[in-house]
Measured scan of single mutants.
Amino acid sequence: SSEEQMCGTHRETKKIFCEVDRSLLCLLCSSSQEHRYHRHRPIEWAA
């Protein structure tokens, strides 16, 4: 659903897949302290 594609923290669309956590992130989350050094892919890659 579209609600699942929205970041609850930043209200941004989740467009990035974190390979380490195997989760979807928004651009702001992907550059956060928690995920900054993880490997990321565009969401299309994970589909």
Rank of each mutant, 00 (worst) to 15 (best):
Pro42Arg: 09
Gln33Val: 13
Gly8His: 05
Cys26His: 00
Leu25Trp: 00
Cys29Asn: 01
Arg11Pro: 05
Cys18Ile: 01
Ala46Thr: 15
Arg39Met: 10
His38Arg: 03
Leu24Thr: 11
Leu25Ala: 03
Tyr37Lys: 13
Thr13Gly: 09
Pro42Ala: 13
Met6Gly: 04
His40Trp: 03
Glu4Met: 13
His40Gln: 10
Ile43Ser: 12
His40Arg: 04
Arg36Asp: 13
His40Ile: 00
Arg11Leu: 06
Cys18Arg: 02
Gln5Met: 13
Leu28Cys: 06
Glu44Lys: 07
His40Lys: 00
Phe17Tyr: 09
Thr9Asp: 06
Phe17His: 03
Cys7Lys: 00
His38Trp: 02
His38Gln: 04
Val20Ile: 10
Glu44Pro: 05
Leu25Phe: 04
Leu28Asp: 10
Glu4His: 07
Gly8Ile: 11
Met6Tyr: 07
Arg39Asp: 15
His10Asp: 07
Gln5Tyr: 13
Glu19Pro: 12
Glu19Asp: 07
Thr13Trp: 05
Val20Asn: 12
Cys18Ala: 00
Glu4Thr: 13
Ser32Val: 07
Val20Pro: 07
Thr13Lys: 09
Glu12His: 09
Glu12Arg: 13
Ser23Thr: 15
Pro42Gly: 12
Pro42Thr: 11
Arg22Val: 04
Ser30Tyr: 06
Leu28Pro: 11
Arg11Trp: 06
Ala46Leu: 12
Glu19Ala: 05
Ser30Trp: 03
Ser23Met: 11
Arg36Asn: 12
Cys7Ile: 01
Gln5Gly: 08
Thr9Glu: 12
Pro42Val: 06
Phe17Gln: 03
His38Glu: 07
Gln5Val: 12
Leu28Val: 15
Glu4Ser: 08
Leu25Arg: 05
Arg36Thr: 13
Leu25Tyr: 12
Glu19His: 00
Ile16Pro: 04
Ile16Arg: 05
Asp21Met: 03
His40Glu: 05
Trp45Ala: 15
Glu19Ser: 05
Glu44Ala: 06
Glu44Phe: 01
Gln33Thr: 10
Phe17Ser: 02
Trp45Thr: 15
Arg11Tyr: 00
Met6Cys: 04
Ile16His: 04
Cys29Pro: 02
Leu24Met: 14
Arg22Gln: 14
Glu4Gln: 02
Trp45His: 15
Arg11Asp: 09
Pro42Asp: 05
Ser1Phe: 15
Phe17Lys: 08
Ile16Thr: 06
Glu4Ile: 10
Glu4Phe: 03
Arg36Lys: 10
Ser31Lys: 08
Gln33Lys: 11
Glu12Pro: 02
Arg36Tyr: 02
Cys26Leu: 01
Ser30Glu: 10
His38Met: 02
Phe17Pro: 07
Glu19Gln: 06
Ser2Cys: 09
His38Ile: 00
Arg39Ile: 14
Phe17Trp: 14
Glu3Ile: 05
Asp21Thr: 13
Cys18Glu: 07
His40Cys: 03
